[in-house]
Design a protein around this nucleic acid. Structure first.
Lengths: 207, 207
DNA sequence: ATTTAGTTTAACCAACTGGTCAAAAATAGA
DNA sequence: TCTATTTTTGACCAGTTGGTTAAACTAAAT
């Protein structure tokens, strides 16, 4: 029955996501994934032939969660200030829902940078869109118009993403040192940080 | 012979550092560490009883690399602007020499946040110094004096560290997307970024 | 030269790991 | 209902893993 099949496949994917994102490729165990999915281990290999193939699917899905919103915002016709504000707002919310993904992606990419190349090969549209080049052109146009200060777009982009992502991936250490490991306090910190980062970036570039 | 002993122990540590920092606790293999150290695997267990104990030593040393400079700068009597400039300058240089450490620390801390607590227990002086509180007081003093804009120190500190660390831990993805995987270009990017980040932070807080 | 203590090794082990396979169970089509 | 196909399972396997052990080696002290 097709429904049962999709159901099992989905149960496997959900379990695999959770385990892989928490423990990484090398730390995850097929048996643990099977247990979490409530099925036999052999069934994992029936649907996804190897651990590596299952992992690649999980990684691909994790990575792709952040692509559509990026495209929507970056390719829109909004001015730079608005784009930045939307970008920070949306991605901080997205990360609140998927806090494990950035650390997972960063870690696995450090282990094997080749994964990124494979994803680009499979999913050409991402690279083809040239999101960055488009944004770069827009920024430099507004620089020349005198709307924003002269700035290197790559540095700006790195700053924006860094300020968003870093407090999430480095949560254990920041929460431990600056917030005495108080989870609620740190959640509040992340919440108030949204407007702070927006102001911080906008102030630093407006002419 | 004491010299021989220290030599073997050092060879093990060097090998363990390299393997653990590259592959993480779960990805590292005792056999691989032994091979890299040029010794028998049983000798690993002779000097460091278990994989976990060896790992803890490596993690502790990796973590402690970043502490002394932090204390030196933060506890000095320099004004805030100078402290920030020194901090960024020094840590970006330090990270160039040890690029694997931040990713390693962040990843292992996400896997097991307890490690941080253990380190604090073993190494009380780090926590006792209350580096952050001291810096916070200084910042708020200069805010009241009208030298710098009103700002929350925790947000400021998170920004500074994030802007330094993020381009290092996220190197594969940034280099891949924004620099077409050109290593030399990315190294040049990191180099010019030092002054950029200093200006970026200073400009954002000066009154 | 012999003893003593620390160092290094080869061989080994039990537990675990990803993966396979044949058979059973469930489902769909006739 | 009977058959063909797909899904699910338990039992199993070969290779790997962290860790142990007893014996061999080294070098200094007596």
């Amino acid at each position: 029955m097709v429904n049962q099949q999709k159901d099992t496949e989905q149960k496997i994917m959900n379990a695999a996501k959770e385990i892989f994102q928490q423990k990484g490729m090398t730390g995850a165990r097929m048996q643990e994934i099977a247990d979490k999915a409530g099925i036999n281990k052999a069934l994992l290999h029936y649907y996804y032939r190897t651990k590596e193939k299952l992992f690649e699917k999980v990684f691909e899905m994790a990575f792709s969660i952040f692509i559509p919103k990026m495209q929507e915002i970056m390719l829109s016709e909004k001015p730079v200030f608005e784009k930045i504000e939307f970008f920070i707002e949306n991605y901080m919310d997205l990360l609140t829902k998927h806090p494990y993904i950035p650390g997972f992606v960063i870690n696995e990419l450090n282990r094997n940078p080749q994964i990124l190349v494979n994803i680009f090969e499979k999913n050409v549209q991402i690279k083809e869109n040239k999101l960055f080049e488009k944004f770069d052109t827009q920024v430099q146009t507004e620089v020349q118009k005198g709307i924003i200060k002269p700035i290197d777009t790559k540095n700006l982009m790195t700053n924006i993403i860094g300020l968003i992502v870093f407090p999430i991936v480095a949560r254990p250490i920041i929460q431990g040192i600056m917030f005495e490991n108080d989870k609620k306090q740190y959640d509040a910190f992340l919440k108030q940080r949204k407007d702070f980062v927006i102001d911080f970036i906008i102030n630093s570039i407006k002419a």
